[in-house]
């Protein structure tokens, strides 16, 4: 494992911790898109089908379990926790999952490395992850006052994707046969979706003003 991959995993983990911190300490999920969180739960559920059949490393298994457990518990908190669910911006979070899920499923059935159930599900999870942030970005744009934790959460997610790209470049240069077009292209698309957010996030941080995205 290289430093980019490890940093990427750690920023991913930190993004989840920041979100759980917001939910547990402030008892609020204001500004967080339930649609995006449900898409992430779907991403991990379909990607980690091999969790008990193909052993990679202890690190790998533990991280998979963490991402599965946290993504489903976040969805549970936002939907069912009697205090947290009240802060959910239901009227603003209007993105339709199906518009993202259906094209991803069709694409995974057509463009994949091997036509097996596990492989198609794995590819589907990559496509869904690429676009899962969209409902969150739409919600951010509609939110007048984006709180610090929400801003940091999205920033950490974007940083995690950017670091994964560096990891792929590094692995391509150092490992033989490391060519994974589907992973790379969907990962690149995913990272590009954050470009606009990054621009405004860094500007607000530099000028020390509250983050606000233009409508």
């Amino acid at each position: 494992m290289n430093i980019f991959r490890l940093s990427g995993d750690m920023t991913h983990l930190m993004s989840v911790i920041v979100l759980l911190l917001k939910i547990h300490t402030i008892k609020s999920c204001a500004g967080i898109s339930l649609k995006t969180q449900e898409l992430y739960a779907l991403v991990f559920a379909t990607r980690y089908l091999d969790i008990f059949t193909d052993f990679v490393s202890v690190y790998n298994t533990i991280m998979k379990l963490i991402f599965l457990a946290t993504s489903f518990s976040i969805v549970w908190y936002m939907r069912h926790h009697k205090i947290v669910r009240r802060s959910y911006d239901k009227e603003q979070d209007t993105f339709r999952h199906l518009f993202l899920i259906l094209p991803c499923l069709i694409l995974a059935l057509v463009v994949n490395e091997k036509f097996t159930f596990k492989e198609v599900m794995w590819t589907f999870s990559l496509y869904v992850e690429a676009v899962a942030i969209l409902p969150q970005l739409v919600l951010l744009q509609r939110t007048k006052n984006i709180d610090n934790l929400t801003g940091q959460y999205v920033f950490l997610l974007g940083a995690y994707r950017a670091l994964y790209i560096l990891n792929w470049i590094y692995r391509y240069l150092t490992e033989k046969h490391f060519v994974h077009w589907i992973t790379w292209i969907s990962g690149l698309v995913q990272t590009l979706l954050y470009a606009d957010f990054f621009y405004y996030y860094i500007n607000s941080w530099k000028n020390n003003v509250r983050l606000q995205l233009p409508a």
Binding site: R5, D9, V56, N60, M63, W122, F178, I182, T183
Partner: peptide, 10 residues
Amino acid sequence: EEQETSKDEL
């Protein structure tokens, strides 16, 4: 030799 996808990543 068969090329496996990068399942060692998260």
